[in-house]
Write a protein that binds this DNA or RNA. Structure first.
Lengths: 235, 235
DNA sequence: GCAAAAGTGTTTCTACTACACCCATGG
DNA sequence: CCATGGGTGTAGTAGAAACACTTTTGC
């Protein structure tokens, strides 16, 4: 969004970045500050960008994430495009677009992606005047967000829910490299909105060929230490 | 694509229209004729269009279908966007774009939709110089298609397959209003790529609250007439 | 020794699979 | 009367759900 060649100012990508802190699902949002009537107004937006020349959609989403977090090899999945003409009806959004893009833009069609990242990996925001923070998913729904970003987050979550049945490995993108079964169960239950039985869940995990037990246990916990497990892609 | 106001020549919609003839899945494709080196070259493309001013993506897809078939209330579901810069690398496609759009266009990001229609409803192509035909899905994969439309069809089929588990009513969009259980089973098996047991399938149907038996049977069949059923949305 | 979470088996129920014969109709 | 597809029941199996107590550890 700086000195690069902008190919098409009518198409953008936006990323719904999910993380899991062990208890709740979180979303990564960018702080947006707008001067309005001599007052500074703050709200949040999804990380996103216009698409550059000769850049594939997936590549654009990937670039946004790398620029934002410094991380590579993040799980990314396109889930939907949003292009309603009333996406850009809020005067605040129009003002912001004109300031950052230096262009009058009627509306923007955005291609939305879901990204899953391990929340413990420290996020290093490259660009100093950009600030990103994690927010609990449930409080986000009540927050003031740019454009239709609230809608996009909702649809992104639904996408993850649906795809979990088909690609169960998605969960492990959100967990640390070594994890306990209760962490896995807690995450599983949060996204499925269930409350599964401890014993049945152990059996289920035992049958997953891609979850393998380590000879290690938790350390420095004020109770019996839980066994650690890791995820293995190709069995 | 004629005298309407084109808002954004960089974004289009394309529709993968599926039909079922009782035996096989079919796709609706537009015949495309291009004069090349004094020879007339014919290939096929998906029905699609540039997005008009103040038009929502869904509305654009819906318009394409209505213009093409004369039908309204068609099942439509957006499933993915395609925007790789090499989408428009084929010289034939570039030529065609310049002729029909009257514009030099680097590349187009397209938002792809799946549509399901009852093949028995007669398709009336409004525009006389447009011709649309049904093609068997398996022969389509070997055909010469415009842009990355072959890829789009493949992804569209996969989308339908995945979504059947979540929204089983999709199947009934492809069947006539009154249908027999073997028609339903035949369709079910085609999309699932299975070969299910007649008796077990009857039981399964009996448990579907949204499939209700009529007091009617087939007519003019050279064998025992099958009972007819209909689909009911809200039970 | 107590608080806090880890770990472990059995029974029940449900959903899916396999399987073979008689029925109705038109020609 | 025969060819064609329509329609029916039962037994076996595998996977999901319900359910309570003992173990380990830090403090």
């Amino acid at each position: 969004m700086s000195n690069k060649i902008i190919y098409n100012p009518h198409v953008s990508v936006d990323c719904v970045v999910f993380g899991f802190d062990g208890e709740k699902l979180k979303v990564l949002l960018i702080e947006r500050n707008i001067a309005e009537n001599n007052e500074l107004y703050n709200d949040k937006k999804l990380p996103g960008s216009i698409i550059l020349a000769d850049e594939d959609l997936d590549a654009a989403a990937s670039r946004v994430l790398t620029e934002l977090t410094g991380l590579k090899n993040i799980y990314l999945s396109q889930f939907r495009s949003f292009g309603g003409p009333d996406r850009t009806k809020n005067p605040r959004d129009i003002l912001w677009l004109e300031n950052t893009m230096q262009l009058k833009i009627g509306r923007i069609v955005t291609v939305a992606y879901v990204a899953l990242i391990k929340i413990n990996r420290k996020i290093q925001v490259k660009n100093d005047n950009t600030q990103a923070n994690w927010y609990n998913l449930n409080e986000v729904t009540a927050m003031n967000l740019a454009f239709d970003h609230g809608e996009i987050i909702k649809k992104g979550l639904a996408h993850i829910r649906h795809n979990l049945d088909i690609e169960p490995h998605l969960l492990f993108e959100l967990l640390p490299r070594k994890f306990t079964i209760s962490q896995l169960r807690s995450l599983y239950d949060t996204v499925h909105q269930t409350n599964s039985d401890v014993r049945n869940f152990q059996k289920k995990v035992a049958q997953m060929p891609y979850v393998i037990a380590l000879d290690e246990v938790e350390e420095r916990v004020p109770h019996r230490a839980a066994r650690l497990y890791k995820f293995k892609k190709n069995p």
